[in-house]
């Protein structure tokens, strides 16, 4: 692609052991992420969609090292050093240009801090702004996210969910990040507020050229907001394509299932094909072959025997399925 790459992720893998803590030992491991790779261009949005437990949040968190992945490589802003192997001090400095917007606006703001303080804490800590300018800076960013400047002197509990999400966004963009992980930023908001926040995210992207990793379970939101969409299932990317292409021509049976069951305003009741009533497999004992095989209407012996690789089937369109060509 012609655009500059902001983030390049290679073979991100993460598993947890199931020990309860203390000194118990257990061999069982949860395979949360297996070899997830993607890249995001400058000013672009990659949508990551899938059901709970598919690894989309783990992806967002482990590439920022909120949780340390087992292996993989992350190259940020064209650098040729792996972000994942940076020592802690350098990692923290490097990470200031990457930000995270959380799903739950009620849990992501310190209830005992004033909003102005929340927004300017990071730049103050790193000497990017002076203490006497802090209030001014916070007001400027409150204005960008569409909140009145009095908000700086209030506490989070005085705001609604949508307003809190704006404060979250202000806190993220005050660091002038090149890249933001948006982890389900609208899923806990009311319908009438969702579009406000989605439009705000789009405006910010336009103005600052920020790249997003947009994580959501709602397929229509992801299609709408993303340039490219990756569908995850049981810790793997099973299909990846530009948003419109994926919408018009989904190849993986799981993508098709997601599209079929997504609630739509079309006057029709939900339709479920026979066999589509399974559930996501347990991540502790993944099947030998394709993780979706159990639920797949077109699975064959091959699918149950070996894991299909993510292969390019068409320009910019990758699918991990033996049957989808």
């Amino acid at each position: 692609m012609m655009t500059e790459t902001v983030l390049e992720v290679k073979n991100l893998t993460k598993s947890y052991s199931l020990k309860a803590g203390g000194f118990s030992f257990s061999k069982e491991r949860v395979h949360a992420l297996s070899d997830v790779s993607f890249s995001i261009g400058k000013g672009k949005t990659l949508g990551l969609v899938g059901e709970s437990g598919c690894g989309k949040t783990t992806t967002g968190r482990s590439l920022l090292r909120i949780i340390e992945p087992d292996r993989g490589k992350v190259f940020f802003n064209g650098s040729d050093t792996n972000f994942l192997s940076l020592p802690e001090k350098e990692m923290i400095t490097e990470r200031l240009k990457m930000q995270y917007i959380f799903q739950d606006p009620w849990q992501s703001l310190n209830p005992k801090q004033m909003v102005g303080r929340i927004i300017t804490e990071a730049p103050l800590q790193h000497g990017l702004i002076k203490r006497e300018n802090a209030l001014e800076v916070s007001k400027k960013y409150l204005d960008i996210v569409g909140l009145p400047s009095e908000a700086a002197r209030k506490y989070p509990h005085e705001f609604s969910g949508g307003q809190r999400q704006r404060i979250n966004i202000a806190r993220a963009i005050v660091m002038k990040p090149d890249f933001i992980v948006c982890d389900e930023p609208v899923s806990s908001l009311d319908v009438s507020i969702q579009s406000q926040i989605l439009n705000l995210l789009l405006d910010i992207q336009q103005e600052f050229g920020t790249s997003y990793l947009f994580i959501a379970h709602n397929l229509s939101v992801v299609f709408y907001l993303s340039d490219e969409v990756a569908v995850m299932y049981a810790g793997k990317i099973v299909e990846k394509a530009p948003s419109r292409k994926l919408y018009e021509d989904p190849r993986h049976p799981y993508t098709k299932l997601l599209m079929a069951v997504a609630p739509k305003i079309d006057g029709k009741p939900v339709s479920l094909q026979p066999g589509q009533d399974g559930e996501v497999p347990s991540l502790t004992k993944l099947p030998k072959g394709c993780s979706f095989a159990e639920r797949c209407p077109i699975a064959s012996e091959e699918c149950r025997r070996s894991i299909p690789p993510l292969k390019t089937v068409e320009f910019e369109h990758k699918v991990a399925c033996f049957k989808a060509l």
Partner: peptide
């Protein structure tokens, strides 16, 4: 509502102001 099949480059979602 961002309905299935709408894309940002050709459709702007209506914003209900306020809360």
């Amino acid at each position: 509502i961002p309905r299935m099949g709408l894309f940002k480059d050709e459709h702007k979602l209506y914003t209900i102001k306020g809360q």
